[in-house]
Structure formats: C-alpha cells, structure tokens
C-alpha cells in the first residue's frame, strides 16, 4: 500500500512539473513573438536548435565535465569542512565565537571581489572551485551549527547517563540529527555552487568550461547560444539536486520514519 501511495505521489509531481514547463514555454514563445528580436529574446525553437548544435559540438562533453568536476570538488570540500567546523562551533561556544569573524567576513565579501581576488591568487583552472567554496561554506557551516543546537537535549542526557563516549555520541546522535536537518540546505547549496562556479569561469576563462562557452556565445552576440547554455546549466542543477535526493532516499531506507 505504501508503494502505491509513493507511486501516486511521484506521478502527481510529474504531471504538475510538465504542466508548469509547458506554461513556461508558451509564455516564452509569446514574449519572443512580441519582442520580435532574436538578439534580445530568442524563440524556444531557435534555442532548441542551439542546444542540439552545442550538445553535438566536440567541446561540449569536456566543458560540462570540467565544470561539474569543479562544482563537485568545491561542494565536497565545503561539505566536509562545513560539517567539521560547524560541529566544533555548535558544540563549543568558544570555537563558535573564534570562527565568527572569519565566517562573517567570508559572507560579507562581494562575490565579484572574491572572483577577482582568487583570479589573482590562483590559476584560472582552480579559481572557480575556491569561489564556489567560499560562497557555500558559510551556508553549510551555519546550518550545521543550528542543527547541533537543535539536537534534542533529552537525548544528549540519555547518552551521558549511559556512559556513551564523546566519539560515539557524535556518530550516533549528532551526525544523524544534523544530516536530517541539512537536507534542504544541501540541495540549495549545490545549485548555488554550480551557478557561482560558472560565473567565476566566465571571468577566469579556463580552457574548456561552461563559463568559457557562455562567454564565447556572448562575444558572438549569439543570444540563443547563451539561452541554450543556461538551459543546460539548469538541467545540470536539476541533476545535482536529484543526485542529492537519491542519496537521501538511500539513507531514508534507514531513516524514513524519522523524517515523517
């Protein structure tokens, strides 16, 4: 019975998604007809043709791969360090206050300034990773700190009474609590990270990347190409989010009931 409910929900989700996409395409078409200038708003058909051209071009696979690699590496580093420092900051007030100025500064520096600075410091291939990291680290860090603070104090008491050591308490209580707390923040951070990496690539111009491709289409005044790459980037963000969801479902096999 559970499975049929699940299937039904997936089906409904799919229907609504398809309807909204169709509505969006119709609006897009109308706007492009009204504006009637391909350089400003290319029509959906022309954009689709551009997507096909780009996907078939020899540089496509390499660009997507390089950009994905940067996004994933940056994300994993931010996730690892964010979890580590977030847990330290959540558990120990002193560490939280010591880290606070750093986090505040990282958060306050304008993304564009960060991109320019990292370009000065690092080679163009690596700079985008650092920019992505800098933007999403505070998000993950702060969510982990909040997650730790929201851990049920009664469960902490229970672990203490039963003489469960610090390491096991972190493994069995803190990490599972923050993981269920982090889910939302994680997919938002993954999508944001991809956007930031691409933006940094537009400026840093590594040899083969999505950002470089964006810049090339723009230089050629090929607006349809920019639109096409945007759609590809949206699709990739969707894939990343789905990947996080799959890991979540896999874990939910174990924790399903907890999150209901």
């Amino acid at each position: 019975m559970k499975i049929s409910i699940l299937k039904n929900n997936v089906f409904k989700e799919l229907i609504y998604t398809v309807v909204s996409i169709i509505a969006m395409l119709i609006i897009w078409k109308i706007v492009s007809v009204v504006v009637n200038k391909e350089v400003l708003i290319p029509s959906p058909e022309v954009t689709l043709r551009e997507i096909i051209r780009i996907v078939e071009s020899p540089a496509f696979f390499g660009s997507v791969l390089n950009t994905s690699k940067r996004a994933i590496i940056g994300f994993l580093i931010a996730l690892g360090t964010g979890m580590l420092f977030g847990m330290l900051g959540g558990l120990f007030k002193a560490i939280y206050y010591l880290l606070r100025p750093f986090v505040l500064i990282i958060k306050a520096v304008p993304t564009m300034a960060m991109i320019l600075l990292t370009l000065i410091w690092l080679e163009s291939e690596k700079a985008p990773i650092l920019v992505g990291f800098v933007v999403i680290f505070p998000i993950i860090y702060e969510n982990v700190v909040q997650g730790i603070r929201n851990v049920d104090s009664k469960l902490v008491e229970m672990m203490k009474v039963y003489n469960i050591n610090k390491l096991d308490t972190i493994k069995e209580l803190y990490i599972p609590s923050i993981v269920s707390y982090l889910n939302g923040a994680m997919s938002a951070a993954a999508a944001l990270n991809l956007k930031i990496v691409i933006a940094a690539e537009v400026l840093s111009q590594p040899k083969l990347s999505m950002g470089t491709s964006f810049q090339m289409e723009k230089a050629n005044l090929n607006t349809a190409g920019v639109f096409a790459w945007s759609l590809i980037a949206i699709f990739m963000a969707g894939v990343f989010e789905q990947m996080l969801r799959i890991t979540k479902i896999a874990r939910n096999g174990k924790t399903l009931h907890h999150e209901q």
Binding site: K154, L155, E157, V161, Y162, N163, E172, P176, S180, K254
Partner: peptide
C-alpha cells in the same frame, strides 16, 4: 557509578 535509567519519556534514537 553505573546508573541505568528508564526515563519517563522513552528517549530512543529515532534513526535506530
């Protein structure tokens, strides 16, 4: 030193 405690609430870990 070694105290077992059945709390008034169950205090089980939800993910176990």
């Amino acid at each position: 030193k070694k105290v077992g405690y059945v709390f008034q609430e169950d205090r089980l870990l939800p993910w176990k």
